[in-house]
Computed example of a mutant assay.
Amino acid sequence: MSEDAFNMSIRKFLKEVGVTSQRKIEETVRKGQVGGEKLKVRMTLTADGTSLEHVVTGEIELP
């Protein structure tokens, strides 16, 4: 696989993660399942068959 194809494949995956994650967060907030002014979030990335485990945490300000 070429480097360009590899990079495009990663970008396609990350775009899917971003779009679907945003939808799920919005749904959760709209359903009223969140209280307070901020939503604490954590995303964990793993890859089958590897030791990859990358965790990103953050806070999302609520409307």
Rank of each mutant, 00 (worst) to 15 (best):
M1W: 15
S2P: 14
S2I: 15
E3P: 11
F6I: 09
F6M: 11
N7C: 08
N7W: 00
N7P: 02
S9K: 10
I10C: 06
F13K: 11
F13D: 13
F13A: 14
L14V: 03
L14E: 00
K15D: 01
K15R: 12
K15L: 04
E16P: 01
E16I: 01
V17M: 08
V17H: 07
V19F: 05
V19T: 13
T20W: 02
S21C: 06
Q22G: 07
K24E: 01
I25M: 10
E26C: 12
E26P: 09
E26F: 09
T28S: 03
R30L: 10
R30C: 00
K31M: 05
K31T: 02
G32D: 00
G32A: 01
G32Y: 06
Q33N: 11
V34G: 04
G36Q: 06
G36K: 07
K38D: 09
V41S: 10
V41L: 02
R42N: 06
R42W: 09
R42G: 08
R42E: 06
R42D: 01
M43T: 14
L45C: 11
L45T: 12
T46M: 02
D48Y: 07
G49C: 13
G49E: 14
T50I: 09
E53M: 07
E53W: 04
H54N: 13
H54M: 12
V55Q: 15
V56S: 12
V56M: 14
T57F: 09
G58L: 13
E59D: 11
E59C: 11
E59L: 14
I60P: 05
E61L: 09
L62W: 06
P63T: 06
P63C: 07
